[in-house]
Amino acid sequence: MKKLSVRRRHPLAALVVLLLALAATGGLYATLAPADEAQAEASAQSLAIEEGKKLYDVGCSSCHGSGGQGSSDGPSLTGVGAAAVDFQVGTGRMPLQQPGPQAEEKPVVYTQAEIDQLAAYVASLGPGPSVPNESAYDPSAGDAARGGELFRTNCSQCHNFTGQGGALTHGKEAPALDNVDPRYIYEAMVTGPASMPSFPNSTLPEEEKQDIIAWLHAVNTADSPSPGGLGLGGFGPVSEGLFAWTFGMGALIAVAVWIGARTAKARKS
């Protein structure tokens, strides 16, 4: 599976999409390391909170304040819930390495057990969305067609038709959703990380989130069919135009040069 995903991101595909952007896209995709899916053993809640507090004091408090009340460097964590922690830390966005338009996905620093402890601590600061059950984001249980409609109403304006990502203002961006663990997609919808608005269950019920995940699973994983051939990044007419200008016209001009060239003479002059 991982191999296939690497192949789908083969340089050839990227070259096709954005000849000039190899380095940028390469760097972007290199950071798309799938998260470790190990589940922590359930531990005593209070113990977890205690352990989480310790981790928090070391890794998070400098920005978010000693009690999660927030500071000029980081928002308050009261009421963000365990789901927000699981998403932010589980995708490597937190702890923040350097300031920028928004927190970037990075290699994960904590183990899943530590993340759970951190989440338990932050959840204890105020009521908020909890980490969903696996059944809530199982793609096979959702209706992809319904999810596609919901996706186009609520998500595609930022994330593109199939979740290839898109630009926001001033260097912010809606990240690509390919091969993101469905759990993080679910958590992102519930918590609304960074610029993203939240889609609470009151307006987008649980089963509809599942439908959206099912749609993404159908069109945007390493195994999703792309019947027509190379997907060209899924960016639409821009990459198609580039392809026509470079590969299409390039091949035809090469052929034209062959036709127009003189045949080699017997005697070299």
Binding site: L4, A13, P225, G228
Partner: peptide, 13 residues
């Protein structure tokens, strides 16, 4: 699945 094109329609290809 045909490398490097991905999971594509065998017939179209």
């Amino acid at each position: 699945f045909i490398w490097p094109f991905g999971h594509i329609s065998g017939l179209n290809f």
